[in-house]
């Protein structure tokens, strides 16, 4: 079909009974809406399917041992992996927040001249670099060349590279939302660039910046590929060495244990998937609520 009923009619110059024309348009309309509803339902049911599988299997796999014991062969617990995920996530955030936030400030506040658009473009492209490429880069550079071995440092740096562009761009967005009048008032009182930004603009943009950091937290908990060949895996708790001591993490347990032919290994994988998914879900819901509340506050301020 190349022309809509209305167009075909206009060209033919005839007038069909309005009843049949209205019917055709109505059929076409409802067909279109049903297809789009169907598309949404497909995606929604996939989301539900995944969550149900993870929660149901994860719930049945939960035992007190999982939270108290380290991994022993294909059984035991996951406390080493839970600890490792926490250490790696915090380490990567610690490494990524200062430069990411500073870059965000630069892109939002000093966006004149030619440098800022180039930086923004490179940062946006960096978001799209596959995580395994960053993992392999980390392996070759840090694990092999620097001789750090599988370690907390190598893993955290690889994760931090993934987080940098997210934190940078979300901080930039948040800082751009701050009204110009605030900056003007601060400059009028004689404050310099640094004081205006750090004491006035960044605090005003803090909810948005924190939302970005929260999402970064979720990403670092859910990533696997950049850690496989930088953090390694460890059956024991972390002893505090920054280099040359592999560390366990939950996403590794999901990948490595679900493909083993043992029920106890599967249980570990399901439990790990439950922890990771639950954590990511809670952060997603929480940050959405935060964004909603922000939008409502802003509307109220303006209205």
């Amino acid at each position: 079909m190349t022309a809509t009923p209305a167009e075909g009619e206009a060209r033919a110059g005839t007038v069909r009974p309005t009843g049949s024309r209205r019917l055709r348009r109505r059929v076409f309309d409802s067909l279109g809406w049903s297809l789009s509803l169907l598309a949404f339902l497909l995606l929604g049911s996939a989301t539900v399917w995944i969550l149900v599988v993870v929660f149901e299997r994860g719930y049945h796999a939960l035992t007190p041992t999982i939270l108290t014991h380290v991994t022993e062969g294909y059984g035991g617990g996951l406390i080493n992996a839970i600890e490792g995920t926490g250490v790696l996530a915090l380490g990567s955030l610690l490494l990524a927040i200062p430069p990411g936030l500073a870059a965000g400030i630069y892109l939002a506040e000093f966006d004149h001249g030619r440098l800022a658009p180039v930086i923004r473009f490179l940062v946006d492209v960096l978001v799209g670099v596959p995580s395994i490429v960053i993992g392999y880069f980390g392996y070759v550079l840090m694990v092999v060349d620097f001789g750090w071995g599988f370690s907390v440092t190598a893993g955290s740096v690889a994760l931090a590279i993934i987080l940098l562009p997210y934190i940078c761009r979300s901080s930039e967005m948040a800082i751009r939302q701050v009204p110009h009048s605030l900056r003007e008032a601060a400059y009028a009182l004689g404050a310099g660039d640094a004081r205006v930004t750090l004491n006035i603009v960044v605090p005003a943009a803090l909810p948005g910046i924190l939302t970005g950091i929260l999402l970064g937290f979720a990403i670092s908990v859910g990533e696997t590929a950049p850690l496989l060949y930088t953090a390694g895996w460890n059956n024991y708790l972390w002893t505090g060495h920054l280099t040359n001591e592999p560390i366990g993490y939950l996403t590794y347990a999901i990948w490595a244990f679900v493909t083993e032919p043992f029920a106890s290994a599967h249980a570990l994988a399901y439990a790990a998937a439950l922890f990771v998914t639950l954590f990511v879900l809670i952060i997603a819901i929480f940050s959405r609520l935060l964004l909603d509340q922000n939008a409502r506050l802003r509307r109220r301020d303006q209205g």
């Binding site: 989301t47 399917w49 993870v54």
Partner: peptide
């Protein structure tokens, strides 16, 4: 929309688990 955007939040390895098992 959040329901669809959740698909982006689910980690890759959890998709792998779901795909592998179910």
């Amino acid at each position: 929309s959040f329901f669809v955007e959740l698909l982006a939040a689910i980690p890759s390895v959890v998709y792998g688990l779901w795909g592998y098992v179910v």
